[in-house]
């Protein structure tokens, strides 16, 4: 961080575009990682049998060689690595009522918590089991919770073969009524044993661009490509690097670069993807005049069959009025019409 700060202060003194540097903001950008439709999980026979039991409103455990009953079951003995649950007689129905072995209180439930009112997370050992499973207890108040208290499951009618088929546990012995199964809207095969589950995950990050990136992006906002130069080897990096990847020293000097260069190599992409341009599109490496590393860019305004290694190109920018603080201001590169550059002249940058 110290390195980047000193890099930035020197940059402010040496860069021609000092005014835009002063507009540098440190706002964070949201970055979401979410696989469309969610990850799938093949359950395997053991976990699948447990989940199938949940769907029918029953809790099953698996007996280990030493006689203890594991709930939820695991595929392999945590002590000996032996396979568990391979024979029908190894399966034991447990509960439905059980005993709280420990718990913690949640005052402010989050959106994805099982209950929208204050509740307890508890480890609950179902009757007949030797281990406890984690679930929510809807006790109404923290004062009503106690280690050793008796609880029973509250089953949903919409059961899919998941631990959430139990809405929560409630205080007391029960009875734990199991409402008739209401199949999921898309679950025409609901009577097959559970063998696959879908688990949506969403990771939402708030990222800081950092000093070097912010100065670069401030340049892009006014149509200026900026790179950094390593004081040791003199190489110019674009997009800029805070440190030279070869020498490991801070790359502190800012360099304004033209938006012209040579296309060193490229791919013609025929595979459609969200966020990518319509196919076929050209992605390639453009070595800007004065830079020492080629940067990844789109190439357009030319039929794909006519794109060549060694082609001279110039950046095509969005109109001034449409500019934002984004790399997308530089739409793509287009041929300049100048003669091609011989391969040998830029081969070392491929």
């Amino acid at each position: 961080m110290t390195t980047q700060a000193s890099s930035s202060s020197q940059a402010a003194q040496t860069s021609a575009s000092r005014a835009s540097a002063s507009q540098t903001s440190d706002e964070r950008v949201v970055h979401v990682l979410e696989f469309p439709g969610g990850y799938t999980r093949s359950t395997g026979p053991v976990i699948g049998r447990f989940l199938t039991g949940l769907r029918s409103g029953r809790l099953f455990g698996v007996r280990m060689p030493d006689g203890r009953v594991l709930v939820p079951p695991t595929e392999y003995d945590p002590q000996t690595a032996a396979a568990l649950g391979t024979a029908d007689e190894d399966w034991v129905e447990v509960g439905p009522a059980g005993t709280v072995t420990t718990w913690t209180w949640v005052d402010d439930p989050r959106p994805d918590h099982p209950l929208d009112r204050p509740f307890a997370w508890a480890l609950i050992r179902p009757d007949g089991a030797d281990t406890a499973l984690l679930h929510a207890v809807d006790s109404g108040s923290k004062a009503a919770m106690a280690t050793g208290m008796r609880v029973h499951p509250t089953w949903r009618a919409e059961r899919t073969g998941a631990v959430k088929d139990i809405a929560c546990f409630a205080p007391g012995e029960g009875p734990a009524e199991v409402p008739a199964l209401v199949p999921a809207p898309d679950g025409e095969a609901e009577l097959e044993p559970v063998s696959m589950v879908t688990l949506p995950h969403r990771l939402e990050y708030r990222l800081r661009g950092g000093t070097v990136w912010n100065h670069f992006i401030d340049g892009m906002a006014v149509g200026q490509i900026r790179g950094t130069r390593c004081a040791k080897c003199g190489k110019v990096f674009v997009p800029p690097r805070g440190a030279c990847p070869g020498d490991g020293v801070p790359a502190t000097e800012w360099v304004d670069l033209p938006d012209t260069g040579v296309l060193t190599t490229f791919a013609v992409n025929n595979v459609p993807a969200a966020g990518a341009p319509e196919v076929p599109f050209i992605s390639g490496y453009v070595l800007l005049d004065g830079a020492d590393i080629a940067m990844l860019a789109l190439v357009s305004d030319v039929p794909w069959q006519e794109v060549r290694i060694g082609m001279r190109v110039r950046g095509v920018w969005v109109p001034d009025a449409e500019r934002t603080r984004s790399v997308k201001n530089l739409k793509w590169f287009a041929p300049t019409g100048e003669p091609d550059v011989p391969f040998e002249q830029f081969e070392e940058y491929v």
Partner: peptide, 30 residues
């Protein structure tokens, strides 16, 4: 089969434009 490697390899950070699709898009220029 639990996911999609092309998707997993194409989750670019917001600081870079999404210009490459999967490993094939990356290695084709080389």
């Amino acid at each position: 089969s639990e996911s999609n490697a092309t998707w997993a390899l194409s989750t670019h950070s917001p600081f870079s434009a999404s210009l490459v699709v999967g490993a094939g898009g990356y290695f084709a220029p080389y």
